[in-house]
């Protein structure tokens, strides 16, 4: 069944539609929250809170808008409020963790060995570099490259102008490259 039909049924109070939507977005929403807060336990709590909020506010959702953007906006607002309460320093624009702060859930399960495929090793390296970025870059890169959202949808989720989205995308990618060059000097990324 299509997304629009599920959302429409949810707006009418259909419990099955809610279950279908949670299932549809389970991994993507969890991944996005994990990208922001970096701690699995916190991401799990925020995941549940997000869907409770969806259930409580679905009547206020304007069906002409993108449900996905609305869902990720709710999740982001909860995650940012959470970080503001628990780790306000992580919301600073400056590097908040460094490469050593990569959480276990986002690292590859095993350290990359020399005989692993280059693609897998690069994924590990980029993942580590991504996790070292400040949250404002992590989230915009996650929304663009992982969630494959349009720029306008990202602007809606972030509640920021398009120019800010573009600027963060550019700085985010440049920062990842700097991190990679710092950590793996001499490695070609072509």
């Amino acid at each position: 069944m299509g997304l629009e039909a599920e959302v429409s049924r949810l707006r009418r109070g259909d419990l099955d539609a809610l279950a279908e939507l949670v299932t549809r977005y389970q991994h993507r929403l969890y991944r996005y929250l994990l990208r922001i807060v970096r701690q699995p336990a916190e991401a799990e709590d925020l995941f549940q809170q997000t869907w409770l909020r969806v259930a409580g506010q679905i009547r206020r959702f304007d069906p002409r808008r993108s449900f996905e953007a609305w869902l990720f906006t709710l999740a982001r607002n909860l995650a940012i409020d959470h970080l503001r309460r628990v780790r306000p320093e992580s919301l600073d624009d400056q590097d908040s963790g460094g490469l050593g702060a990569t959480p276990a859930a986002l690292r590859s399960s095993e350290p990359p060995a020399l005989d692993l495929a280059i693609a897998r090793e690069r994924a590990h390296q980029v993942s580590a570099a991504l996790e070292a970025l400040p949250v404002i870059y992590r989230e915009v890169l996650a929304l663009r490259f992982e969630e494959e959202m349009k720029l306008e949808e990202i602007a809606e989720v972030l509640d920021a102008p398009l120019s800010t989205v573009k600027s963060r995308l550019r700085r985010g990618l440049e920062s990842i490259r700097q991190e990679l060059e710092k950590r793996y000097p001499g490695q070609e990324w072509q």
Partner: peptide, 17 residues
């Protein structure tokens, strides 16, 4: 170089809920 990074970002493993 940027395109390669973008391609890797798109293929990052998705943590499972």
């Amino acid at each position: 170089s940027f395109q390669e990074m973008g391609a890797v970002l798109r293929r990052l493993p998705t943590p499972q809920a």
